[in-house]
Amino acid sequence: MTIKVNRVKEYEALLDIYEREGLDTSLFGDRVAAIIISGSKIIGLNNVPGVEIKGEEIENGVRADVRIADGVELPFPIHLCTGYLKSEGYQRVEFSIEVGTNSKVKFTSHCIFPYAKDFTHEAASKITVGENSSVLYDDEHVHGEGVRMISRTEVEVGKGGRYTGRFSLTKHRARELKLEMTAKLADRAVAEMTSKVKAVKDDSVEIKEALLLEGAHSRGDLKSTVIAFDESQVNVVNEAYGLGDYAKGHVECHEIVKGEADVQTVPLLRVRNDKAELTHEASIGRINEAQLVQLMAKGLTEEEAAELIMKGLLGE
């Protein structure tokens, strides 16, 4: 890993946060392809054979290009770390990720803003998955009390490719979160996108995910799970468009409400091909009564049972 000499302290501070939060510090090792961003600076960069990461510092942020060659299969994930260690400010990151054909890679993206009180983070990503390639993209966040986050991701999956995206913000405050994800699928391509968010106090969460099943036999799954407490506001719109022959899509939104939270979910299915098949499942409500009672019959209190169910739902 190449670390900027005048940024060693920031690098070490990020490492400390990883340790404190129980995140995998081995991702900072030399065998892992990585870009480490702090504020508007690239403080660490590492390339491995088959992976080329180029970064450029722009106004208030960083733009990075990640290229994966054809036929690459990596034993370790590619680490994208975006940190902001001040309490106030604005940061913009732009990622352009291109995965060649017949490759299999995993990305671990961490957004680390632990001290944020009045901070805006804007992220725009474009991911292209080449033919017969497989990409797993894990996105995890460590937020302080005051993060305004706007994230837009566009994914294009080539013929026979597979994209799995997992977004999770469950251990820290969401505050103001706007998450937009679109996946466009070619023939026999597969996309699975999961988002799990916990909203508390006066948090405001907006999730909009869309599946464009353009290719024949393409298949997609969108799944959002939100737990809304207190006076939080949540709006989830999950869309699936069945355009290709025999395209198959499923949209699932589950929201659990506790307190005065205001939650809305809209599953939108649109078919423009009579051979396509789309399904949806949506629920908003309290915690399932049968689950609660059956856990209480193991001796748990109602609160303990509810907590266990929610932890399970959020995959904590």
């Binding site: 399932n288 049968a290 689950q291 009672v293 059956q294 019959a297 193991k298 001796g299 266990l308 169910i309 932890k311 399970g312 739902l313 959020l314 995959g315 904590e316």
Partner: peptide, 14 residues
């Protein structure tokens, strides 16, 4: 006292 129900519940993540 404990019980098993006619239709056992399912739990995600457990």
């Amino acid at each position: 006292i404990s019980m098993t129900w006619q239709e056992p519940a399912r739990y995600e993540g457990i």
